[in-house]
Design a protein around this nucleic acid. Structure first.
Lengths: 341, 341
DNA sequence: TTGTATGCGTTATCAG
DNA sequence: CTGATAACGCATACAA
């Protein structure tokens, strides 16, 4: 069993420096309010005792934990993990720790509000659009607990958000393929519980119609954002008897699965079928063929969302209106697409 | 600015249920010590008030935060992110939250001990072998703060650890290639600050010698565990004028870079050069060619390390001796390797 | 079985 | 500029 060694408290420091605890506290939080000499003495005492502030006591007193709660559907996924990395970095710069929740259980809203109410975290960074609207609102929103939704559009427009325009981005993908001469275009969409999925699908359909292209039901198949489902989607298309000349996958992992499925069916990419992904995860540029994809500024999404949340927590945001930051996405053309004919 | 709504305290519940705060506390922590009827009334009051326990107060009182601190070099990396996912899940099952630290700054030891001493976390899960031994010891270790090191070997044998045998695994890789007829084998190693890197390199060298194979210096090149460095390593080999028939990369991402570099040089994998990776990240089986790699049980590493840490924290571990759990790794043979000749 | 009193370590208020 | 004091919300020793 661990030997419980005595952790020095502010009182120990005070004793050591021959001042009151209040003075020590002041040296730590607002040094300018303490005289040069006492400050020096206190700082020395802090060093000598090896004192570190007790956050539990501080949180209790200040009603703030200097901790953010980050909720994502799956931190193991490279897409989210990049964002998590950015959030941790940004939060750290502002003196905040990050508590990470992944794959919330049966009652995510309850779980999240417990976390927030319990004073373990000061605010919530939500990277999961699949949460129940109604309860989400009274959990956070305009006048509730600090909450910023990012990446996936929050079902409730009253919450602050940081996003790209998924619908418009999907339209640009279709335009790009159309410009390459493709007329028969398929789409592998993602989990429909994510609003961004639906936006991409909607963008796909909208632009197809706008260009006068036919949407073939057999070529529009749902996936679940992993490689296996991309592979499965292609198998379905193959089974249907005829293939599109281009496939737009709603994320890069499904695009990888699609390319693999194509090869399995004796088709080449981009020779026979062009493939476009979404997100631009690290491996996209190293896959063979290197994947053409819609780049999402994930680092920026994580950073900006974190900064916004901290501003809200610290009351720097005077505006009542929720902020909706829209970031730019950009198509990165690589080798998985080619001009038709 | 957010309207601060009144968060109910244990007092509010007590008032509502017409009992003392102590009774409410008891209902929450040891219900069996309270009479049926009062308990019912209190439970009802909890529901009515929407009470959630204040963790800050509880932590202060109990000297425990029910929170684990997880430190990894780069959470954005798919290898670590899988582990993180497992840790979060396991910790959650035991009622612990997980605070994640990534890319610690200049003085990681200081940073970590601050976190632990400040009562924000009860123990540390260390997935980074690059930390300074000496200070690590007085930070945690046998009789210090609860600490479990995983994945990378801790420099200090006094700390609990959960690992695979990297050296032995590397030897098996070489044996496998040798069995395929390869005699000219190269190695792309990783960051030398990681002990596991050095173990893999050592295993490579040991087995090469044991098999009477020549270690060609131009074919043993260091990388930094990302795809770019795998590509760079191959470029160096190519520049040296002659190539091995097989390359063992210390992780899958470098293996991907290696394969890409090979192709860039007009060489095929596995036609001209066989490639073996390490870790078995998700994309390994979907790459083209599917990558032969040493599978590390990352989920198990994360889970077992977490369980061990919690046991230590809760004092279930009576043994003074540090535990060293050694997990099995397994070579997964796919398409990036082939029999020579 | 339940209530009362106390203290965990900190910061803020208010005197001096 | 500094010190004494109270309060943050909870869990427990002790009393009833």
């Amino acid at each position: 069993m661990a030997v419980t060694r005595k952790i020095p408290t502010i009182q120990d420091v005070a004793r050591h420096a021959q001042v009151s605890a209040a003075t020590v506290s002041r040296v730590l939080s607002s040094p300018e309010r303490v005289s040069e000499t006492t400050r020096k003495r206190v700082e020395e005492a802090v060093r000598a005792t090896g004192y570190t502030i007790n956050q539990a006591a501080r949180s209790l007193r200040m009603r703030s934990a200097r901790t953010l709660l980050l909720a994502a559907p799956d931190v193991g996924n490279p897409f989210y993990s990049t964002i998590v990395e950015a959030v941790i970095g940004t939060a750290g710069q502002h003196g905040y720790g990050v508590l990470v929740a992944s794959r919330l259980g049966d009652d995510p809203n309850r779980w999240l509000s417990d976390y927030l109410n319990s004073n373990r975290a000061d605010g919530l960074l939500l990277f999961d659009g699949s949460l129940d609207t109604s309860r989400l609102h009274d959990l956070g929103g305009a006048e509730g607990l600090p909450l910023v939704a990012a990446y996936d559009e929050p079902p409730d427009p009253a919450v602050h958000s940081v996003l790209i325009d998924n619908r418009e981005a999907a339209r640009r993908v279709v335009q790009f393929l159309h410009g390459l001469g493709h007329r028969q275009i398929g789409h592998v969409s993602g989990l429909s519980r994510n609003q961004s999925t639906n936006e991409r699908l909607l963008g796909f359909e909208t632009e197809m119609r706008a260009l006068g292209l036919k949407i073939v039901p057999e070529w529009v198949v749902p996936g679940i954002y992993n490689m296996e489902s991309g592979l499965g989607a292609v198998r379905k298309m193959v089974a249907s008897g005829h293939m599109p000349t281009a496939i737009f996958a709603a994320n890069d992992e499904m695009a990888i699965g699609v390319i693999r499925g194509l090869r399995e069916a004796g088709l080449s990419c981009p020779g026979d079928v062009s493939v476009v992904g979404f997100d631009d995860i690290a491996v996209a540029s190293y896959y063979d063929p290197a994947i053409t994809t819609m780049h999402q500024p994930r680092e920026a999404i994580g950073r900006i969302a974190t900064e916004a949340l901290i501003e809200i927590i610290e009351g720097d945001v005077s505006e009542e209106r929720p902020r909706h930051v829209m970031l730019k996405s950009e198509l990165v053309v690589r080798d998985s697409t080619r001009r038709l004919g």
